[in-house]
Design a protein around this nucleic acid. Structure first.
Lengths: 117, 117
DNA sequence: AAAGATACATTAGAATCTTATGTATTGGAA
DNA sequence: TTCCAATACATAAGATTCTAATGTATCTTT
């Protein structure tokens, strides 16, 4: 899925769709390369998406009706912009909420206390 | 990996080893079936391990030197108890810490605020 | 006597990722 | 001016990790 500097890669499995959908929810429209850079930036260099994971995921989300695309030529290079469809927006919300519930459940199972930040 | 009632199964990928090691860290020794029941109990019914995921994982953790085993006959039924090796104990600690770091990183990427519980 | 719970295990197939490879343009440094 | 890094897309073989199905056997409850 991604190259991750500090963490066990195993833990990251299954989170890529959630990340992509939430980023698009926050930013309106983004293209693939931009997503890889934004993730690196937000995670402070800890998480680096690989293209081999990202592009197939974007294609699948589009095929499933969660994303719409728009090709734009910038300079001499093509960019393929992705944007949430209404269904995709609903799913972004759902997946992010599920992630919160998931961590809460894991805290119960792992017997670790929620942080007091 | 598991049957999970409420959450997207994708999110759970990669967490099974962490769960198993942490449970053994908390409980000394446990057998496979007991682990499935304890997880169901701790997660309040939200997470149910499947045998097809659990047993291969236990075998792999043993092969990797993280767990030692002990067979005990109780009634007419065999139980195979698992216990952390010193290396396994270190890894349990490491994996649980990594899980915390992982959720912290995901919160940054998903732009969600830590809870104030 | 049958069904559900306890207790182990394996396997085919699906999903998801890693690693490697490929194409092409732009911009900056040597 | 030439070459390398960055930008920007994409695919594909193989590995890993799970799900769902199946199998064996004992104990307990109805």
């Amino acid at each position: 899925m991604y190259l991750c500097i500090m963490y066990s890669k195993e833990l990251l499995k299954g989170t890529l769709k959630t990340i992509v959908l939430q980023l698009l929810s926050d930013n309106g429209r983004m293209y693939g390369y931009e997503i890889t850079q934004r993730v690196k930036e937000l995670s402070e260099g800890e998480l680096k998406l690989t293209e081999g994971a990202l592009y197939p995921t974007l294609h699948k989300l589009e095929a499933d009706g969660f994303l719409s695309t728009e090709k734009v030529k910038v300079g001499g290079r093509m960019r393929k912009y992705y944007r949430l469809t209404p269904v995709g927006r609903t799913d972004a919300f759902r997946k992010t909420n599920e992630f919160r519930s998931f961590t809460a459940m894991m805290e119960k199972v792992l017997n670790i206390k929620p942080r007091l930040t």
